[in-house]
């Protein structure tokens, strides 16, 4: 059940904040300051959607880990220059850090092979999705992320985790708004720092849906593959493959006994 307040505060307002910060970033001088504002263009809406300020509240559940890592991602996306070695290894470091923290909180953690595969898949999809940033038009990454977020939201509903579905839908709304605006004004895209934050937030949401909820891990792998194929240089091929993998993920995630609650 999504109330009108949820729709306003966790979907529309975050999308508006995202666009405003993208506009602010376009007017900021290139460098650390711009990267910070671009990262915040995704991070602040995410914190609004997640409904918490993680530094001010006691950490209670594993889903509260994602905002903490998102803030860490903001710092790294801001401080590290693109093309540097540290910048390139960020997905590996943050994906591993987040998943290790998540696994340590589970009553019965999965087997080591599952943990290793999860970290590898998460980091590989993230690294692939950001690999061709400079060559692609500004609207492509928001479109890829928005599509992935919509699919993750639907998969979370299939996995019976409405709270995570709402978070993914909120991120999707932000990416969708950024995509629409950047079609007309390419400078208003949130760029690499914003996409890094959105990728971590989406990956974290997906990991929570799998390891805390009932989402099929195969569906999650298909969704990560859908993110990874966005690195294909041809847009029709990349987007077509993404849609096909997304459809496969939804089919895999579909609950056998329907959606009755």
């Amino acid at each position: 059940m999504v109330s009108q307040a949820d729709l306003l505060l966790r979907i529309l307002l975050p999308a508006l904040v995202c666009v405003l910060f993208c506009a602010l970033a376009s007017r900021t001088a290139e460098g650390v300051a711009r990267r910070l504002v671009q990262a915040l263009a995704c991070a602040l809406p995410y914190l609004l959607i997640a409904g918490c300020v993680p530094l001010l509240m006691p950490q209670r559940s594993a889903t509260d880990l994602v905002p903490l890592f998102v803030l860490l991602c903001v710092v790294l996306a801001t401080a590290l220059k693109p093309r540097g070695l540290l910048w390139r290894t960020t997905p590996v470091v943050l994906a591993a850090g987040f998943l290790v923290s998540l696994f340590s909180r589970l009553g019965a953690p999965p087997a080591w092979s599952v943990r290793a595969l999860s970290m590898l898949a998460f980091a590989a999809a993230w690294a692939a999705a950001r690999s061709g940033d400079r060559e692609r038009p500004a609207w492509r990454l928001p479109l890829v992320l928005g599509t992935a977020a919509g699919a993750i939201a639907f998969a979370c509903i299939c996995g019976r985790v409405a709270s995570l579905a709402l978070i993914a839908a909120g991120i999707g709304a932000c990416c969708g708004a950024s995509f629409l605006v950047s079609l007309r004004w390419p400078k208003l895209s949130f760029g690499a720092p914003g996409s890094d934050v959105a990728l971590l937030a989406l990956g974290g949401t997906l990991a929570c849906a799998v390891f805390l909820g009932e989402l099929s891990p195969y569906a999650a792998l298909a969704l990560l593959a859908a993110l990874a194929v966005s690195s294909l240089s041809s847009f029709p091929r990349a987007f077509g493959a993404q849609l096909a993998l997304t459809a496969l993920a939804v089919w895999l995630a579909w609950p056998a006994d329907g959606f009755v609650t």
């Binding site: 559940s61 009553g107 019965a108 019976r160 985790v161 409405a162 995570l164 390891f211 009932e214």
Partner: peptide, 8 residues
């Protein structure tokens, strides 16, 4: 699920 008891 994590919406309620988050039993895992």
């Amino acid at each position: 699920s994590p919406d309620f008891f988050s039993v895992k």
